[in-house]
């Protein structure tokens, strides 16, 4: 609106005035018609004249307005700018607070963007990255070629087959697909424990660990992924392995995530025969060292692990 020349503004004013006059005249006509006429037989001529006069003034006002509006042309400023300005032009603005809310939102977004860039600068100092998205570049976001959960079944099979082959000496790995594409991987680690991983694509979705004497098949012969081990040791290890899946989670390299989890899981083969590396004892609260360090794979009790760090 500010871009209009003074001449145009003058014409706009004129047009607005004409519109107002037209409206008041039209209102008059309707007012008179709605009031009704008394004593029509005597005054009919006078009344008709009156009506004719007001109607003709409406007519002239309308033609004046049409002539005036033709010189004005379309509102260039409004059509060129964004949709938000159109909201501003809307006369209903006074009744709704959409525009002011919009302005607030813009301000808030700007502020957030600014603070996020500070935060990303701080986080840049930490070199450990799970995703290759460069911090601070909001506009340039790398697109993943394929989300980890949508890998085709054949790719998952290739990976699992290679794992079965690679670790056949230490663990027995078997794969079933009870409900379509999601693979359920069952691992028997020596004579120590059994583990069950549920994969969605290549993402590990669910983990359960049970004892060597327990079974993952329910009474009806179907795979039972929900029931927990009856032994406290394996309930605790289930918690630790779940935590480890989050640690090893790498959406860009899902196969590495699975491989590293399995390598780490192998360290549990000495669950009952290795003492804690911190306190040197086997038992703490009746449990053996249930935690294995994620990098060194050394055995620790749950509490000793906390003290180590």
């Amino acid at each position: 609106m500010a871009n209009q020349t003074p001449n145009q503004i003058e014409q706009l004013h004129k047009a607005l005035k004409l519109t107002q006059r037209l409206r008041s005249n039209v209102t008059q006509v309707f007012q008179k018609l709605s009031d009704g006429f008394e004593d029509v037989e005597k005054k009919d001529k006078y009344l008709l004249n009156d009506l004719h006069k007001t109607l003709s003034s409406v007519n002239t006002d309308l033609s004046d307005l049409e002539a005036g509006s033709s010189t004005l042309g379309p509102l260039t400023a409004a059509s060129n700018s964004t949709n938000s300005t159109l909201i501003c032009v809307d006369p209903i603005i006074d009744k709704t607070s959409t525009y002011t809310q919009l302005i607030h939102t813009y301000k808030w977004t700007d502020k957030m963007k600014e603070q996020a860039s500070y935060a990303s600068n701080l986080l840049k100092e930490n070199q450990f990255k799970r995703t290759p998205i460069q911090s601070g570049t909001f506009t340039k976001r790398l697109r993943r070629s394929q989300p980890a959960c949508c890998y085709p079944q054949s790719n998952v099979d290739v990976l699992l087959n290679s794992l079965i082959h690679q670790y056949r000496d230490t663990m027995h790995i078997s794969v079933v697909r009870p409900l379509g594409s999601s693979a359920v991987v069952m691992i028997v680690l020596g004579k120590t424990l059994k583990a069950l991983l549920v994969l969605r694509g290549m993402v590990i979705e669910w983990v359960k660990v049970k004892g060597y004497t327990e079974d993952f098949h329910g009474e009806d012969g179907k795979v039972d992924i929900w029931s927990s081990s009856r032994y406290q040791v394996f309930q605790k290890i289930t918690q630790h392995v779940t935590a480890a899946t989050l640690h090893y989670y790498a959406p860009e390299m899902p196969d590495i995530a699975i491989k590293s989890l399995i390598i780490w899981l192998q360290s549990y083969s000495t669950l009952f025969s290795t003492p804690c590396q911190k306190c040197g004892q086997f038992l703490q609260n009746g449990l053996p060292p249930t935690w294995r360090d994620l990098r060194t794979k050394k055995a620790y009790h749950e509490r000793c692990k906390l003290m180590e760090k």
Binding site: K191, G211, V233, F272
Partner: peptide, 17 residues
């Protein structure tokens, strides 16, 4: 010791207990 099935594995653990 219920979770273990091989005596050799948990001998030292049993000894400690």
């Amino acid at each position: 010791y219920c979770p273990c099935v091989v005596a050799g594995d948990c001998m030292n653990l049993m000894k400690e207990m």
